[in-house]
């Protein structure tokens, strides 16, 4: 083992923050969604790294469940995006502000 676990964790942190930047700075619903996937994967990497460090499989099982949830989320989320596009002809998140107080 020549690569320390800390390197994997740092990489995960970096990817996570990249995902956050995507969510905050991009207005296209699709790209925001991809950024969220990026964040999930960053967390997955962290899980796997910790599983390796501790020698326990629970971390990998957690990744499995994250995958399941991500799949469901993508399916539902994309359906919502399509529904929004169908009624408003846009995928710009800033145009969807019905909850404005």
């Amino acid at each position: 083992m020549t690569v320390p676990i800390g390197a994997y964790l740092a990489l995960g942190a970096l990817l996570f923050v990249l995902g956050i930047a995507g969510v905050l700075l991009r207005r296209s619903a699709l790209i925001v969604f991809m950024s969220i996937e990026l964040m999930l994967n960053a967390v997955n990497l962290t899980f796997v790294a910790f599983a390796r460090q501790l020698g326990r499989l629970e971390g990998q099982v957690a990744v499995f469940f994250v995958l399941v949830v991500a799949a469901v989320e993508v399916v539902v989320g994309l359906a919502i995006i399509i529904a929004i596009f169908r009624t408003r002809a846009t995928v710009d998140l800033d145009d969807v502000d019905l909850l404005r107080g």
């Binding site: 969510v23 905050l24 925001v32 998140l93 502000d97 909850l99 404005r100 107080g101």
Partner: peptide
């Protein structure tokens, strides 16, 4: 007063979460 905090923009909510 408080309703101004509810911009309706998903991204500002995300910033608040962050």
């Amino acid at each position: 007063t408080l309703r101004r905090a509810q911009t309706g923009f998903v991204r500002s909510y995300a910033a608040a979460i962050l």
